[in-house]
Design a protein around this nucleic acid. Structure first.
Length: 437
DNA sequence: AGGCTGTACTG
DNA sequence: CAGTACA
DNA sequence: GCCT
């Protein structure tokens, strides 16, 4: 069975604007598809499209806003690690397995493909049309299984969250506690330490913005631990008892208890805002952001001339790339892609996130379902067990050298289903909605 | 003192 | 090779 | 940031 997996994200706008589908992503969009690229570069939004190519009943194309170069003052509660996940309603994963051996997928010439691709990309907002695809072969899955998987019920996003209150205190079985059931729940409103959590969250937010990954981890773990802690924290001594809370945080917690405030937060202000601003340009990370700040740059206008090509694109679509893609829009586009893809090869199984998620391809499924924290926990666990987990599978008997250098690929032991991967890691399977952190 | 995920692309 | 991104 |  051949599967076309469609990856459709805002992020991909960069790759398209960049003329080609990057090697990692598939070959449906041939690198020679320059028409696509030139359309993007020249035209921006294609609202003035030739009406004959535009789908008759398509929803209005979102206008590409003009860059405003202003601070984006997010609601604190709205931002954070989860936003990306939710925003990308339809995604596919480029699986590299057997890429070289994958059979030809179409009898069409690449020129014909180009034309089709250009056509369906052309008729849409370039951002929304950001599409990549990859073709893989699922040699170990029969068509029956695929059909069955496809018909499987979908796990609803909001199902199962209502019973937080009477969660069973199952004993944590995973080291570090990152994967315990308790990690995923918090009483929020009813937590006696909520005001402490709020302050620490502000700190976390700062470190996330400044991309201080280690402090981010530290704070995140501590906050999770405090959330799970159901008794009021009365002082430093209480705090430091909690695993994940060390002396530094305990002192901060005491300050919060005593004064209701954390002075440290007052000093953080502007730098964090600027770093957040800079790093919200796709392609700009903490390193560059801090460098710019040390050079006295403060606004997007300041940095404009320092950008690489990709970063310029990131800036050009600054607003769009930091915006959620409406689900409706995703649906619309993925339908268009599938139509085009089926025209290339009627045999092709086209999978976007919705049905893709229901496929029994455990490793990729885990990867794309996330959360990122959950993935990291799982991978770390695998590492500690002498294994390796990635989006392609779970590998055993991996030999690591000094400095964690991996010396061998290992032996593929689980790939097809989430269940077998969880089993091999000794982690109880949990539904996607319990994999946030 | 040094780890805290694994992989791939960019420049 | 460091930086960035993705889950 | 915390943990080993």
């Amino acid at each position: 069975m051949i599967v076309l997996m469609i990856d459709l994200t805002h992020r991909m706008a960069l790759e398209l604007d960049n003329v080609l589908s990057i090697p990692k992503y598939g070959r449906l969009l041939d690198p020679d598809g320059y028409r696509v690229a030139s359309t993007l570069k020249r035209g921006g939004p294609t609202s003035q499209d030739d009406p004959t190519t535009a789908p008759s009943n398509s929803s209005p194309v979102r206008p590409v806003k003009h860059k405003k170069y202003s601070y984006n003052t997010d609601d604190e509660a709205e931002r954070g690690a989860k936003s990306n996940l939710d925003a990308q309603d339809v995604i596919g994963v480029p699986l590299g397995r057997d890429r070289e051996n994958a059979p030809a997928t179409s009898t069409l010439s690449s020129a014909e493909k180009d034309e089709m691709v250009a056509e369906f990309v052309d008729e849409r907002d370039p951002l929304a049309s950001a599409i990549t695809a990859d073709i893989i072969e699922l040699s170990d899955m029969s068509e029956d299984e695929a059909d069955e998987a496809d018909g499987q019920q979908i796990v609803t996003e909001n199902g199962g969250n209502g019973s937080d209150g009477k969660k069973s205190r199952k004993q944590p079985s995973i080291q570090g506690g990152a994967l315990t059931k308790e990690s995923f729940y918090g009483d929020d409103a009813n937590n006696p330490n909520q005001y402490i959590i709020d302050k620490l969250k502000e700190m976390l937010d700062f470190y996330e913005r400044t991309k201080d990954q280690w402090r981010t981890i530290g704070y995140r773990k501590a906050i999770l631990a405090i959330k799970r802690h159901s008794n009021p924290i009365l002082g430093k001594q209480d705090a430091i008892q909690i695993p994940g809370v060390g002396t530094r945080l305990a002192e901060k917690i005491e300050e919060i208890i005593n004064t209701g405030h954390l002075r440290r937060l007052d000093n953080l202000g502007e730098t964090a805002e600027v770093i957040k601003l800079f790093t919200s340009i796709y392609g700009v990370g903490s390193s560059l952001a801090m460098k710019w700040i040390s050079q006295g740059l403060r606004t997007l206008d300041d940095v404009e001339k320092h950008l690489t090509r990709n970063q310029k694109i990131g800036l050009k679509y600054f607003e769009e790339l930091n915006e959620r893609m409406p689900r409706e829009e995703v649906t619309r586009i993925s339908e268009t892609v599938q139509t085009a893809a089926r025209a290339l090869d009627p045999q092709l199984q086209c999978i976007t996130m919705g049905s893709y998620r229901r496929l029994q391809m455990g490793a990729a499924l885990i990867y794309f379902t996330g959360s990122d924290i959950f993935n990291r926990s799982m991978r770390l666990l695998a590492f500690r067990m002498g294994m390796r987990l990635n989006q392609r599978g779970l590998f055993a008997d991996v030999i690591y050298g000094p400095d964690r250098v991996r010396l061998t690929e290992g032996r593929l032991i689980a790939q097809r289903t989430e269940q077998e991967i969880f089993d091999d890691l000794g982690v109880p399977w949990r539904p996607p909605h319990e994999r946030h952190c």
